[in-house]
């Protein structure tokens, strides 16, 4: 049987938050491509939005890897937002408000605009869903239409670092704050088989400043949220969620783009381990579907 037309139905791919580690999703997609397994929908959260959008727009995994190197460098957080520091120190004098972020986001916006321009989510070749978190109430927000750049910017609005992002009169922050691995979106959209690539937030080796302290707190919250949400969705879903959790033996920091080949390799390795089962599952589903239509 030819694998390229073996599977009648495809899978939903969910790419969780994980900064540059999300590039492992490119390894997953390489494995799916080689096996002839189609992707029916893509869901992205935080940096996972970058990859979900690149892939949904038809870019190859090699192109997406290359784009990451242009987009995701430490220089995007180099510029301090001096007014934000003043607002934090003298809130009344400088008018502290909800659009607080300690880093200037002009460079990241410039790069997102260069990469995606005015591309719209609803116009992507593969159905795309990008998640963020409503800053007013903590609810998960799912963007299935609108400018991709806005949804991505909202979803990577790491609290304290980048300011919440306004879309249609609401402010949004990083998607990981509501669900670091949003498989629930794929469930809601009717996916039967969900391949979910998620990542633990790394804990700090040394807590030597307030920033690291904040990242440690955030990692604890995020990792516990990941577990609880994944447990709930795993038990609630009637079909299958196949978790693919790459194991990185090297420490990957937020902007380690030089490690992308290694990250992709680990993504491939983790996906290859689940491929035999995924193929059997899709074959079984295809057989059931064929018997139903025979």
């Amino acid at each position: 049987m030819n694998s390229s037309h073996r599977h009648q139905r495809g899978v939903a791919v969910v790419i969780g938050s994980g900064s540059v580690k999300c590039a492992a999703a490119l390894g997953l997609v390489n494995v799916l491509n080689r096996a002839g397994i189609a992707i029916d929908m893509l869901v992205g959260c935080s940096a996972g939005c970058l990859y979900a959008t690149m892939l949904a727009s038809g870019r190859t995994t090699a192109e997406a890897a290359e784009m990451t190197k242009q987009l995701w460098t430490s220089t995007i957080t180099d510029q301090h937002n001096r007014r934000a520091w003043l607002k934090a120190a003298f809130p009344r004098l400088f008018g502290f408000d909800a659009r607080f972020g300690l880093r200037d986001d002009r460079l990241v916006m410039e790069r997102l605009n260069a990469a995606f321009g005015d591309s719209r989510i609803e116009a992507m070749g593969t159905p795309l869903f990008l998640t963020a978190t409503d800053f007013a109430n903590g609810n998960q927000a799912v963007f299935s239409s609108g400018r991709a750049v806005d949804a991505i910017r909202a979803s990577i609005a790491v609290p304290f670092l980048f300011s919440p992002w306004p879309i249609d009169g609401h402010l949004y922050i990083d998607g990981y704050m509501s669900d670091p691995l949003p498989v629930g979106v794929a469930m809601r959209e009717g996916a039967e088989v969900i391949v979910a690539m998620g990542f633990d937030s790394p804990y700090q080796e040394h807590i030597s400043n307030a920033g690291r302290f904040a990242f440690q707190v955030s990692a604890i919250l995020s990792n516990n949220l990941l577990k609880s949400q994944f447990a709930f969705h795993g038990l609630a879903h009637h079909a299958e969620i196949i978790p693919i959790i790459p194991e990185f033996k090297q420490r990957i920091r937020m902007f380690d783009t030089e490690k992308i080949p290694y990250i992709i390799e680990e993504g491939e390795r983790a996906a290859e381990a689940q491929l035999p089962y995924l193929s059997r599952l899709l074959d079984a589903q295809a057989a059931v579907a064929a018997s139903g239509t025979a």
Partner: peptide
């Protein structure tokens, strides 16, 4: 270990 990771991720 691979199964333990899934059990752990799922809170089991």
């Amino acid at each position: 270990p691979p199964v333990l990771r899934v059990l752990d991720l799922s809170g089991f």
